[in-house]
Design a protein around this nucleic acid. Structure first.
Length: 240
DNA sequence: CCAGACGTTGTT
DNA sequence: GTCTGG
DNA sequence: CCAGACGTTGTT
DNA sequence: GTCTGG
């Protein structure tokens, strides 16, 4: 799954430039982005161009009664999005890209959780495949939310967790937000695990566990603390 | 036809 | 929004 | 995703 | 144990 990620300022700017979107308001690097917070996303505008928009992470279906209580939809399994009531509409009509520098997955070690940071091996920014929705309150206020699509983990991430977010690359990026595409047969093949050879991962500062830790210290290497006899974390993944 | 239900994922 | 049940 | 909160009633 | 908040 993917319940936390990283987006550095310069990476967002590079991506916006790539899509021909001029950088909006100032964005500061965020090293511990969590569900329920506002995240930058890219989608096709009503006019057919690209736009960057703030979305709340945690999709709320348009028909939901309460946007807070049940909104735990920060991920959507690729296998089910074409049919699940909560996602099928967004899958056809409201696809988006979510810029990122890297993401976290947790390794359970006994009673503690160790966060690992995964990114492209070349440290280039990338985009997650996302869905968004619009919810209107009884008072008429509009709330736009999003969810990140997950798929099977590749062999690198798979050492830690069996799922990972879908990372789009190449022609898949444009195809995903092309509004002319609505057929699952065309879209679902884009939702594959990112190539393991192009990814790397390493254990990082356990302070990541708390959403209050938001700075670059999140990416500090995890202290090496393998107790004798217990299996400690491997130093890194993504190497031969 | 209308009323009412339906949210998802993750983990052990 | 869309499907199911009555 | 993880961390942290969450008591409940009856009675004065 | 389970729900809420970030």
């Amino acid at each position: 799954m993917c319940g936390r990620y990283v987006l550095k300022r310069k990476d967002l700017e590079a991506l916006l430039q790539h899509f021909g979107i001029r950088s909006l308001e100032e964005f500061h690097s965020r090293y511990n982005i969590a569900p329920t917070t506002i995240v930058p996303a890219i989608r096709t505008s009503a006019e057919g161009g690209r736009e960057a928009v703030p979305l709340r992470w945690g999709l709320v279906p348009s028909w939901a009664k309460d946007p807070a209580g049940g909104a735990r939809l920060c991920n959507a399994r690729a296998e089910g999005i074409a049919a699940k009531p909560a996602f099928r509409h967004a899958f056809r009509k409201k696809r988006c890209l979510v810029p990122a520098s890297g993401f976290y997955e947790w390794q359970t070690l006994g009673r503690t959780k160790l966060p690992w940071y995964f990114s492209r091996r070349d440290e280039q920014p990338f985009v997650f495949a996302g869905l968004w929705e619009s919810w209107r309150s009884p008072a008429g206020t509009e709330l736009e939310t999003c969810s990140l699509i997950t798929t099977d983990a590749n062999p690198v991430v798979g050492q830690i967790h069996d799922r990972m977010p879908v990372i789009l690359a190449g022609s898949g990026v444009e195809e995903w937000i092309n509004p002319e595409h609505e057929e699952p047969e065309k879209l679902l093949p884009l939702l594959r695990p990112f190539p393991a050879e192009e990814m790397s991962g390493r254990p990082v500062n356990p302070q990541v566990n708390s959403v209050a830790t938001e700075g670059p210290e999140c990416l500090e290497p995890a202290p090496v603390l393998p107790a004798p006899g217990s299996e400690g974390p491997q130093l890194s993944l993504g190497f031969e």
